[in-house]
């Protein structure tokens, strides 16, 4: 009987008869890690959903009263409350909400009188591209600057870059947004000061409308990523294998971009993932600055109008987005860095 171990690929190629395949240790560890993470992920999602529901359960404001107005009679109110299931106990309401979400039925907005799913989808058409554009800006700015600063450590160029990242960290993104409007919209007239025409109505106009808010969000995130890229590069550049690459007489470009950057990017990628999750959920203020009909503005207005189904579903959607992105980041990190799953 022949044992086949140490396969390069994690999957097992089984052959008939005498060959017994032994999955590599890395594969088993990764599977175990994945199961452990999936359990924690499921638990966290449950806790998030129950927390969202509990917070909004105690939130003042009766949805039935909001729908019918202040002149509604107690009987009509009671009927509507029964119809909406608001007279049910906490757990029944929670389970109904969950069942509706899982079966795709979803909730209905009290103010817009349309499914919350549709509202989320239409708002994601603004928030999603804006978050992606912000991340693109952040990456374009931060990676070259971080690498440049690391290569010129403690020289004037490095100090200048670090100074600007400190400024970026200290600048509120909504203030940067306001300053951009002041400069590029009010003074130069290059951009609209706010609003969103809609992708179908005006594609380029919509893209242009997202440029300034995405830039404001991206610059602030770029400050964090630049510092991280720099410190991560500095750490990797001190590693033995990089010294070996230098000793082999490789060109600087090869050492930096082929050998060092790949490893230096691991922590940077992690933070990028986290930032993307935060951007999907936390662009509320910038969406208000630019009057963008995004997810943040939807939920902000819904809170003010006590449109509980919208608030509940959007908050859950945002929380799940953050948790899912964190989960993917964890998995990516474990795939790239085997030490994580060994711990």
């Amino acid at each position: 009987m022949r044992l086949k171990s140490g396969l390069k690929n994690s999957h097992c190629i089984c052959r008939p008869a005498e060959t017994i395949c032994v999955r590599p240790a890395g594969f088993l560890k990764m599977t175990r890690y994945l199961i452990k993470k999936l359990n924690a992920f499921a638990l966290l999602l449950f806790l998030v959903s129950i927390s969202v529901f509990s917070v909004l359960f105690v939130l003042p404001g009766d949805p039935a009263q909001i729908m019918l107005g202040i002149n509604a009679t107690p009987e009509t109110l009671a009927n509507l409350r029964r119809e909406l299931g608001l007279d049910q106990p906490f757990w029944t309401q929670y389970l109904t909400w969950m069942a509706n979400l899982l079966t795709g039925k979803g909730s209905r907005s009290l103010n817009y009188d349309m499914p919350v799913y549709d509202l989320i989808l239409s708002c994601m058409a603004v928030t999603g591209p804006m978050a992606l554009m912000a991340m693109i800006f952040a990456v374009i700015i931060s990676l070259p600057l971080g690498i440049y600063a690391a290569r010129h450590q403690n020289r004037p160029a490095d100090v200048t870059v670090m100074f600007f990242t400190q400024l970026g960290l200290a600048t509120p993104e909504f203030w940067l947004g306001i300053l951009l409007i002041l400069l590029l919209s009010v003074n130069l007239g290059w951009f609209a000061a706010g609003g969103f025409p809609g992708w179908r109505a005006d594609f380029w106009g919509s893209l242009k409308a997202l440029l300034l808010p995405a830039f404001a969000l991206g610059v602030i995130r770029a400050s964090i990523l630049t510092r991280l890229t720099r410190s991560s590069m500095l750490e990797v550049l001190r590693e033995d294998y990089v010294r070996t690459a230098w000793a082999k007489g490789l060109r600087e470009r090869t050492v930096i971009y082929v050998h060092a950057l790949r490893n230096a990017l691991i922590p940077v990628l992690t933070i990028m993932g986290l930032q993307l999750g935060q951007l999907l959920a936390g662009a509320i203020i910038i969406e208000n600055v630019y009057y963008l009909p995004g997810l943040g503005r939807l939920v902000f207005n819904a809170i003010g109008q006590r449109d509980l189904p919208v608030v509940r579903d959007v908050v859950l959607f945002m929380a799940v987005a953050v948790v899912v992105v964190n989960f993917i980041v964890d998995l990516t990190y474990a795939t790239v860095d085997p030490r994580i799953r060994l711990e």
């Binding site: 966290l44 806790l47 998030v48 927390s51 917070v55 105690v58 939130l59 003042p60 935060q278 959920a281 936390g282 509320i284 203020i285 943040g296 939920v299 902000f300 809170i303 003010g304 608030v311 908050v315 945002m318 929380a319 953050v322 948790v323 964190n326």
Partner: peptide, 17 residues
């Protein structure tokens, strides 16, 4: 659990409540 919640959004929710 707390890290899983969007901080700005929850802060808005709390202050509104």
């Amino acid at each position: 659990l707390l890290f899983g919640f969007p901080a700005v959004l929850t802060a808005i929710l709390i202050t509104s409540t």
